[in-house]
Design a protein around this nucleic acid. Sequence first.
DNA 1: TTGTACGCGTTATCAT
DNA 2: ATGATAACGCGTACAA
Lengths: 319, 319
Amino acid sequence: MMTVSRAINNKPGLSDELRQKILALADQMGYRPSQIAQGLATRQTSTVGLVVPDITNPFYAPIARGAEDVAYEYGYSVFLINTAADLDREAVALDSLWRKEIDGAILCSLRMPLDQLEGHLTRFPAVVLFNRELKKPLPNVVSINVNDMRGAMLAVEHLVESGRKQIAYLSGPANSYSSQRRLEGYRQALKNAGLAFDPQMIEAIQLNDSLHATTQAAVRALLARNPGLDGIFAFNDLVAISAVHTCQELGKAVPGDIAIIGADDISLATVIRPQLSTLHVSLAHIGRLAMRTLLEIFAGETSPASYQIEPELILRETG
Amino acid sequence: MMTVSRAINNKPGLSDELRQKILALADQMGYRPSQIAQGLATRQTSTVGLVVPDITNPFYAPIARGAEDVAYEYGYSVFLINTAADLDREAVALDSLWRKEIDGAILCSLRMPLDQLEGHLTRFPAVVLFNRELKKPLPNVVSINVNDMRGAMLAVEHLVESGRKQIAYLSGPANSYSSQRRLEGYRQALKNAGLAFDPQMIEAIQLNDSLHATTQAAVRALLARNPGLDGIFAFNDLVAISAVHTCQELGKAVPGDIAIIGADDISLATVIRPQLSTLHVSLAHIGRLAMRTLLEIFAGETSPASYQIEPELILRETG
DNA sequence: TTGTACGCGTTATCAT
DNA sequence: ATGATAACGCGTACAA
């Protein structure tokens, strides 16, 4: 048995001749070692977990794709889990992954409270955390964050520079960290430009309901309160697109009357007309980076405790 | 050890009192059985594989979501694999899943030749095959197919009934089964309406290159050969959307001059303007059905050897 | 260079 | 109702 094991795992300790013979026979018999048994013996499963709110969201799909691509290259398999932004499901998922003895996990935008989260994190050999900050660094976790605040500033600065005076922010739900950070950037950019911050210029989009309907309502409310509205920064592209259509339905030209800038540069941004101006981040790259980082931790290589992704303002047709 | 095992797995053979004591203690110690070890002992891993060409494709994402949702409900985890329509990667993926000793797999749109495919299929305890027909049924595999031919007929019939005379088909690559079946439906509907089939009315879209660029070229070519073109049926929604935009760029009104109908009803269909007329199939439902079917096979319940999903023509704004 | 004993964490089987 | 033993399929450590 051991000779076979050594032959198949390419380990030294047997003649090349015997190795070839074993390999040929194994191939002929269709024998491949059970990864379950290997996992039990070596405590390594060549398996990682990928937790996202919703794989259907064009923001997360490319991340998953990038991560799985790299995993495939290195012989790892990935468990996909959708949390649906449900706290219980997050907890159950993490527990389930732990019981599967995964080698590591990529956790995207978990809503779980920090203290509860850390309890889970320490149980995994390695974790990459996306869009979530830790209070103090843990040795086995690396975080990757988009510089949302800086991105929002870029967008709002451009709106100001192109002469917009009444700029609104279409925010996400209050429990979205990204949305909060973008709100900060929005306020900061306004302040830097000597413009007053007006709470009337904020509308929050709840993600549960029909996105387009709620965005429609939000834009209408914004316009009712501020007839001179001439610029909108939306916390993500889907909302931005809905805002574009709503403005057009209301007889407002985009960007003539109202300039609109989204965030994330999902693939939809270039398929709609007018093409959406937005903050570009390479989603597939983030996924690849996350998985590569995980592999580096496995290999014991030291990597930065956190990565910051800088968004880039892409001006297309809406702003 | 056995008493603990029985307590945790809710098996008979111990007093309720003891069971509670064990459960409480296990909870306090944070003990949960290793699914790897369980897998080795029981030969069941509570794990399934989901193989799709590309999770980034808005057609497959909802299927994956639906499947994972059901898996979650029943305590199963799912391995996500993107094949990128690469034959080697398909084979490697299937082998990898087999070594992981998955309980079953959902295989979407595999390109692999039938004889090679069957070799893989028989190694799995249970398989649901999507968009792929088997020559003769295997006892452990159920297939789910969209009635693409019927769908194409619905679309083309409607185009004919609304007065369109020169109807083109924007087909997919030659190795796409769906696209081939839709071509059949297109031809059949033409025939039924007494219209001649003209090869000049077909253009194939290669998926490798930039989708919009190739669609643009295809539509231009179609229009150059047939200036009177007044209807287009596209083999999927993404291509249909590109076609809509191309027509508009070329000064053709949609659907005034040219009516366009897509297929699949991906979520994008309702976010673009004009909203896309298309063939609706509930993707999330297919995913859920696929996973439920897998679970039924596990449970030894008999289910039909194949399901046929009937598309429904949804008339929105492009046709 | 090759083979043997043991352990990984769990469940099935048989005994008590 | 509870416990002891073997087995699942492999890799590690050590002996031959």
